[in-house]
Simulated scan of single mutants.
Amino acid sequence: MSKKHDFAQSLQGLSEADLKVKIKEDEMRMKKLTFAHAIAPLENPQSIRALRRDIARLKTQLRKTQIGA
């Protein structure tokens, strides 16, 4: 399976509170990465894109749990 599919499968069993905590942690990591990239170029700038997409997947899963889908 793809990494995206594995990530989505790992989110299935998480509660709403767990998802919110994970979103907060990833958003802080995102801020740190973008700040570090502004100071000096990152070795792998694609990691910012991947993290941004993971945050979006987390928010989507949170919304699904909130509406009960």
Rank of each mutant, 00 (worst) to 15 (best):
K31Y: 00
R52P: 02
R29K: 15
K59G: 13
L58W: 02
L51I: 12
E25W: 02
F7E: 06
P45D: 01
I23L: 03
D54E: 11
G68C: 05
L58P: 01
K4L: 10
H5N: 11
E27H: 00
T34R: 09
M1Y: 07
K32G: 06
K31S: 09
A40P: 03
K24A: 13
A69T: 15
K3L: 09
A40C: 11
L51A: 12
G68F: 04
M28Q: 12
K59P: 02
S10G: 08
E43T: 15
Q61C: 07
A36W: 00
D26E: 07
D54W: 05
D6L: 08
S2Y: 12
D54N: 10
A40D: 05
I67N: 12
R53C: 05
D18I: 10
R52K: 15
R29I: 11
H37A: 12
D54I: 13
E27Y: 01
K59H: 08
E25D: 02
Q46T: 10
E43A: 15
L11P: 08
S2F: 10
G13H: 05
A56I: 11
K31A: 09
E25H: 06
H5D: 06
L14F: 01
L19N: 00
A50W: 07
K22C: 04
K24T: 07
Q61A: 08
A17G: 05
